[in-house]
């Protein structure tokens, strides 16, 4: 019983993804990809392992406190940020091995030509509550 975040990275560097960007796929290929994601989430709900899944817009705003009585400063996007978060899925599974298995499956979502895109997903454990028994 441990929760993990599967993080999808955007604006792929070669490390993350080595196929063409999605806007150069055919519409059917895009639909098939999205359908795969939805089916995957539905399957995890059915197996009792789904926690949350969200997609994020690629462009966001950077915000920072700018002192008492002043509105926050907004800025960005910064050119040096090569890597953005595209979305995530959170899962609640029995073991690390199961989390790796599911991330591998999500990474097999179809891309151009219906081939698995084999994108790198980042798997991060949640920090939960401390256990009760202490010695």
């Amino acid at each position: 019983m441990a929760k993990y975040l599967m993080l999808k990275h955007y604006r792929s560097t070669s490390k993350s993804l080595d196929c063409a960007p999605m806007d150069q796929w055919t519409p059917d290929e895009v639909s098939a990809h999205i359908q795969y994601m939805n089916d995957f989430a539905a399957k995890l709900t059915e197996s009792g392992e789904f926690v949350d899944g969200q997609a994020l817009a690629p462009e966001g705003t950077w915000v920072r406190y700018d002192g008492e009585g002043r509105p926050p400063v907004t800025d960005g996007p910064f050119a040096e940020t090569k890597d953005l978060i595209a979305g995530w899925m959170a899962i609640d599974v029995d073991s690390y091995e199961r989390a790796v298995e599911l991330a591998g499956e999500l990474s097999a979502a179809p891309g151009p030509g219906g081939q698995p895109i084999r994108e790198w997903l980042e798997l991060r454990p949640f920090l939960g509550a401390p256990p009760t028994v202490t010695e």
Binding site: T45, E46, G48, E49, F50, D92
Partner: peptide, 15 residues
């Protein structure tokens, strides 16, 4: 209590 959606827990129990 386990911080998962109700639908997920319902499936876990019925499985």
């Amino acid at each position: 209590a386990y911080l998962v959606p109700e639908a997920t827990m319902a499936q876990r129990i019925s499985r």
